[in-house]
């Protein structure tokens, strides 16, 4: 087995990298793919919390890199999906403890037994972010339809084209834009950059459009990827579609709304 290594990156913080890592990883695993999620945000780890595994962390990526723990000891198996695993970041160590050789060894070992390795990049363009993208075959660039996020995505695209192992070998990292927190009504009124605007500016193909939704916050509140907490919600369906596109399937692009809204309205229940 040779896994595909995906980096979820953005440059800017708070755009939804961790939410996306959790949701795309879960979506792939729901389709019977064996998936390992790696949190690269040393000192500010959160993927464990979003995945609901915060109380099960024993060892972390740096322990493995430094040989303190073996990889199978550090990987946390998801309680809901058989084929989903998490390698948390260290919360206490210095980010300089991550070395390129060490990360390379961990990823090489994972490649042999997994279908997908999804690297959750920290914000910024420092060491953690460059190491998260270093060995990637594919990049998911999470972008909000907002000027600072688009600018930072452009910067990250530049780094993906120059600082990755693939780029240095003269190959290309396969890059995709994932637009999150999109509000179609505001875009239609000219209040928000449109999908076309963002894609034209970044000249990179689209992986999916995740609509702005309360369900994303609810999912992180309860520690569950949104594709599991409410598979019928707009963001969950958008992530499930995006995961299929990552696998190479041809799925028509849409901006899913929340399917249960009508149901809730009929029965007078509050959404969320």
């Amino acid at each position: 087995m040779t896994a595909k290594v995906v980096v979820v990156t953005s440059g800017k913080g708070g755009v939804g990298k961790t939410t996306t890592t959790a949701a795309l990883g879960a979506a792939l695993a729901q389709g019977n793919q064996k998936v390992a999620l790696i949190d690269f945000d040393v000192g500010l780890r959160n993927l464990d919390l979003v995945m609901g595994a915060e109380r099960r962390v024993v060892y972390d990526l740096i322990n493995v890199v430094q040989g303190v723990a073996k990889l199978p000891q550090a990987l946390i198996k998801d309680k809901r999906i058989e084929t989903l695993w998490l390698l948390p970041a260290s919360q206490t160590r210095d980010k300089d403890a991550l070395t390129e050789d060490g990360v390379g060894r961990v990823i090489a070992e994972l490649r042999e037994t997994y279908d997908w390795i999804i690297c959750d990049s920290p914000a910024g363009i420092e060491r953690g972010a460059t190491l998260a993208m270093r060995f990637a075959d594919t990049a998911v660039i999470v972008t909000n339809p907002e000027v600072s996020s688009v600018r930072d995505s452009d910067r990250i695209i530049g780094l993906l084209d120059s600082k990755t192992e693939k780029a240095e070998k003269g190959q290309r990292v396969d890059k995709h834009i994932l637009i999150t927190r999109f509000d179609p009504a505001r875009a239609a009124r000219g209040e928000m950059l449109t999908i076309e605007d963002v894609l034209e500016i970044l000249s990179t193909p689209l992986l999916g459009i995740i609509p702005e939704s309360q369900e994303v916050l609810r999912a992180s509140n309860i520690g569950s990827p949104v594709t599991l907490s409410d598979p019928a919600s707009g963001p969950a369906r958008a992530y499930l579609d995006a995961a299929r596109r990552l696998k190479g399937e041809n799925v028509p692009m849409a901006i899913p709304g929340d399917r249960k809204r009508l149901f809730n309205r009929l029965f007078g229940r509050r959404a969320a």
């Binding site: 907002e146 000027v147 688009v150 875009a187 009124r189 000219g190 209040e191 950059l193 449109t194």
Partner: peptide, 12 residues
Amino acid sequence: RRGSAPVARERL
């Protein structure tokens, strides 16, 4: 206010 997205696009 309505027209701020085109301004954003051009500035970018």
